[in-house]
């Protein structure tokens, strides 16, 4: 009888402890980003615009981008984003792509074509910033600045930062989808729970991610985020 009971309990345990699926709502709005916007171009010169499309879960996806100039007498642009400045004047450039639901996602920006020489400089070190906010009942708040340095980014968390020290295994990420760590860049484990501190992030473009994300690994749940403005 004892053997039968042991078998019964072992079977019950095995059958009732199967790994199932938990689904998370990770859908976000698609984004189309022109990576190298300029505001002026000299007559007779060309410039290749580059784009990145982020799909509805924040992943980079190759898409057909349609380019259009609102004043083709001033500037023409082909399907690859190669613009040719034809005559002095003002125009706007529009980049769009058709989404899965047949709606159109569009980005536009103005551009001046001039007879004067235009020097397109390498952008100086950029700086972006944002506010950390909790998305749970755990304390998490503060300001941050994401600063570009040679070959690295510095994420500076401000003096007003506060985070609960109770979460087991709190980690910080850079991500294009604040609802998931899927495709996110793990910066490291959070060991400081109040006050100013910083993280060094090597070999990452400052515009590569849209959010910072705080995530509890053991509970596998998002704790908070901050949009990088």
């Amino acid at each position: 009888m004892k053997n039968n009971l042991l078998l019964l309990f072992a079977i019950l345990s095995l059958f009732s402890a199967c790994i199932g699926d938990d689904f998370i709502d990770d859908e976000i709005d698609e984004r189309l980003v022109v990576n190298n916007i300029i505001d002026s171009l000299q007559v007779g010169s060309t410039f290749l615009f580059e784009t990145t499309f982020f799909n509805n879960v924040g992943q980079i996806e190759q898409r057909t981008i349609n380019w259009m100039s609102t004043n083709e007498d001033v500037l023409s642009i082909n399907e690859n984003g190669l613009a040719t400045a034809l005559a002095a004047g003002n125009t706007s450039l529009i980049a769009n792509t058709v989404l899965d639901d047949n709606s159109t996602l569009e980005v536009d920006f103005p551009l001046v074509v001039t007879e004067e020489e235009v020097v397109i400089e390498e952008p100086e070190f950029e700086e972006r910033s944002g506010v950390i906010q909790t998305t749970t009942f755990y304390t998490l708040e503060g300001d941050f600045v994401l600063r570009e340095e040679t070959d690295q980014l510095v994420l500076e968390i401000a003096e007003n930062y506060q985070a609960s020290s109770s979460l087991p295994g709190l980690y910080i990420y850079l991500t294009n989808n604040p609802n998931t760590t899927n495709g996110a860049l793990e910066i490291g484990r959070v060991n400081i729970f109040s006050g100013a501190h910083s993280y060094i992030i090597p070999d990452v473009d400052i515009n590569a991610y849209s959010h910072i994300l705080y995530f509890c690994k053991p509970f596998n749940v998002k704790v908070g985020d901050g949009e990088i403005q």
Binding site: I19, G20, D22
Partner: peptide, 21 residues
């Protein structure tokens, strides 16, 4: 006999397995 587990984490948008259980 002690068994501990956690579930698969699956994208509700794409069905992709994000973190295997």
């Amino acid at each position: 006999y002690s068994r501990a587990y956690f579930n698969n984490l699956v994208s509700g948008t794409t069905g992709e397995l994000i973190d295997p259980g």
